[in-house]
Design a protein around this nucleic acid. Sequence first.
DNA 1: AAGAGGCCCTGATAGC
DNA 2: TGCTATCAGGGCCTCT
Length: 287
Amino acid sequence: MPELPEVEIVRQSLEKKVKDKIIEKVLVKNRNLRFKINSKFENHLQKKKIKKVDRFSKYLIVLFEDTSGFIMHLGMSGTIHLYDYNKKNIFTNTSFYNSPILPKKHNHVIIQFNKLKFIYNDPRRFGFFKIFKNKIELKKNFSNFGPEPFSKSFSANYIIKYLKNKEKNIKNFLLDQKFVSGIGNIYANEILYNSKIKPNRKGKSLTKDECKKILLFSKLVLTKAIKKGGSSIRDFKNTNGDMGKFQKEFNVYQRENLNCVKAKCKGVIKKKIISNRSSFFCNYCQK
DNA sequence: AAGAGGCCCTGATAGC
DNA sequence: TGCTATCAGGGCCTCT
């Protein structure tokens, strides 16, 4: 599920539930996620009071009062489920619903608060948890990352300079977290559609004007997605509550062979695999 | 050294 | 209680 907008939605709703709560008990059922969960993980979390839930790129950052904490990544299939003992309901990062049904398989990490249970579920196990002792240790994790699209340092000049003389295609740059942090496959496709640039264009082939469009639409598409509650695709058919709504606004993603949504455009959305990821684009209005 | 491709893993779906 | 192939919102590692 998670690109930057989805992770931000999770962050907002998770923080409301766990802020100022004290961790009573931690149970790791399976340490073998993307990276093996540190053997000190349980002790590190024990009795800590949560000050804040932060986010960088697609990473959630749970901060304790003593400036230590842990990083969480949801990978491709990670979901968070919170069981509220008072309200007897469950919040997940994919939807809100009242049925007290929790997934049965793949519940790898359980964090117990007073009257609240946090469950991390991840079938594919591409997600991970990583503890940090202080701010410096936290920052180290992101030292190789490029700016987020909203950051001031993600500027037209930065993009122009970065893409100069580069052979790699622009789609891969948008997915490259060293270039820009937080964009994944859905939004890369949508940003390129809005910018009217074909995904296979080489970095060095982009004009200054096109670089400015990349800048503008990176911000715009992600902002709009956050406002819409992110994108919910697949696996939500059994739930009734709030889902993300941005999937209704996809212009190209998963729209293979459909007509371009742009008025008067005669184009058709094509699908092409670029670096093992599906790329969708209009064969007419994207140049 | 930049860039392409393989791979980690499970589950849903389409096609046979 | 069919089987098999393909694909999925990520990103690290290896090879050239």
